Amino acid sequence: VPQRAWTVEQLRSEQLPKKDIIKFLQEHGSDSFLAEHKLLGNIKNVAKTANKDHLVTAYNHLFETKRFK
């Protein structure tokens, strides 16, 4: 089981690129989880459509539901 890579403050910070969060989610989330949160596909394309709040919610949801690969 992966550990949380970032704190809530870090997740919301401008310093953390959306692409980093997407990469983490794609590496650790199950396909059904990723599909549900519309996070499947090319990281660049996902970054265009997903806002930061959406990614933070998905990140927290992944750990709450433990839907890891």
Rank of each mutant, 00 (worst) to 15 (best):
L16A: 06
V56M: 05
A5N: 15
T65K: 10
F33G: 00
F63Q: 02
F63G: 01
P2F: 04
A47F: 08
R4V: 05
N51G: 11
V46F: 04
L25N: 00
R67H: 07
E14D: 14
D53H: 08
E9A: 05
T57V: 14
S30P: 04
N45R: 14
D31N: 15
E9W: 02
T49N: 12
T7L: 04
P2E: 04
K23Y: 07
F68L: 02
L16C: 13
K23E: 14
P17Y: 09
E27R: 08
W6P: 05
Q3S: 11
V56E: 06
D31R: 14
H61R: 12
T65G: 11
S13D: 13
A5C: 15
Q26A: 04
N45S: 14
V46N: 04
H61T: 14
I21R: 00
K23S: 11
K66L: 09
F63N: 02
K52E: 03
K52N: 05
F68I: 04
N51T: 11
K52P: 03
D31K: 10
A58Y: 04
Q10W: 03
D53W: 08
F68K: 02
D31M: 13
V56G: 03
F68N: 02
P17W: 04
L25S: 00
N51S: 14
T57L: 13
K44D: 15
I43E: 07
R67D: 12
Q15I: 06
I22Q: 02
L39R: 01
V56S: 06
R67F: 05
E9T: 04
N42C: 14
K44S: 14
Q26I: 10
I43Q: 06
Q10H: 06
L11V: 04
L11K: 02
L25A: 00
L40E: 09
E9N: 04
K66W: 06
L11Y: 02
Q10A: 06
Q15V: 07
E64W: 07
K66I: 04
L40A: 11
E64Q: 08
E27C: 08
E14N: 15
R12W: 15
D20V: 14
Q26D: 01
D31Y: 13
L39V: 05
L16V: 15
A50W: 07
L40W: 10
Y59Q: 00
Q10K: 04
L62G: 01
K44E: 15
L55T: 03
P17C: 09
V56Y: 05
S13K: 04
Q26F: 06
K66P: 03
S13T: 04
T49E: 12
K44T: 14
S32A: 12
T65N: 11
F33Q: 00
D31T: 13
S13Q: 06
R12M: 15
R12F: 15
E9I: 03
K19F: 10
F68S: 02
T49W: 15
T49F: 14
L62W: 02
L11N: 01
S32N: 08
A5I: 15
F24V: 04
F33W: 08
R12D: 06
F33T: 00
S32R: 12
N45G: 11
N60C: 11
D53A: 07
K19S: 14
L16P: 06
K69M: 05
A5R: 11
L40H: 09
K18M: 07
W6T: 03
D20Y: 09
A58Q: 02
Q3D: 14
F24Q: 03
R67A: 14
A35I: 13
Y59A: 02
T7Y: 03
L34A: 02
V46C: 06
A5Y: 13
T57E: 14
A35N: 09
V1R: 07
H28D: 01
Q26K: 07
D31A: 13
A58L: 06
E36S: 08
A58T: 06
A50F: 10
A35Y: 14
K66Q: 10
E27V: 07
G29A: 15
Q15S: 13
K44R: 14
S32G: 09
T57A: 12
I22C: 02
D31P: 12
P2D: 04
S30G: 06
Q10E: 12
E36C: 08
T65C: 14
I43A: 09
L25D: 01
I21D: 00
K23N: 09
A5F: 12
V46P: 03
W6C: 08
H37K: 06
H28T: 07
K48C: 10
F68E: 02
L16R: 04
K66G: 13
K69H: 07
V1C: 13
K19H: 12
T7N: 07
G29L: 02
K18G: 09
T7V: 04
I22G: 00
E9V: 05
N51V: 10
R67P: 04
L62N: 00
L34T: 01
R4M: 06
D53M: 07
H61P: 00
G41S: 05
F63Y: 09
Y59W: 03
Q10R: 03
A58I: 13
G41N: 05
H54K: 13
K48A: 15
W6M: 02
K52F: 06
K19G: 12
N60K: 06
P2G: 03
D20I: 11
Q3C: 14
T7S: 09
K69N: 10
L62A: 01
A47Q: 13
V8L: 11
A47E: 15
R67S: 15
P17Q: 13
A47T: 12
K19L: 13
D20L: 11
K19A: 14
T49K: 11
S30H: 10
H61V: 12
K69S: 08
I43D: 05
L40I: 12
L34W: 00
A35R: 09
H61C: 14
A50L: 13
L16W: 04
Y59C: 02
N45M: 13
L16N: 03
I43F: 07
L34S: 01
K66F: 09
K69E: 05
N51C: 08
K44V: 15
R4Q: 10
R67L: 09
G29Q: 00
E9G: 03
V1K: 06
L40R: 09
H54S: 11
L55E: 00
K38H: 13
E27I: 07
Q26M: 08
E64I: 07
L40D: 11
L25T: 00
N42D: 14
R12I: 10
S30V: 05
H28A: 10
T49L: 14
V46G: 03
E36H: 09
D20F: 06
L16T: 10
G29H: 01
S32I: 08
I43K: 07
L40Q: 11
H61M: 15
I22E: 01
V1F: 12
K52A: 05
A47S: 14
D53E: 14
E9K: 05
K19C: 13
D53Y: 07
L39N: 00
Y59G: 01
R4W: 09
N42Y: 13
K69G: 07
A47P: 02
K18Y: 05
E36A: 07
K18R: 09
V46K: 04
L62I: 05
A58F: 05
F63A: 01
L34C: 05
E36G: 07
E27K: 09
H37A: 05
T57D: 15
G41H: 05
F68V: 02
F63V: 02
N51Q: 09
S13F: 03
K23D: 06
A47L: 13
A50T: 13
L39Q: 00
K18T: 12
I43N: 05
K66R: 10
K44M: 15
R12C: 15
T7M: 03
Y59E: 01
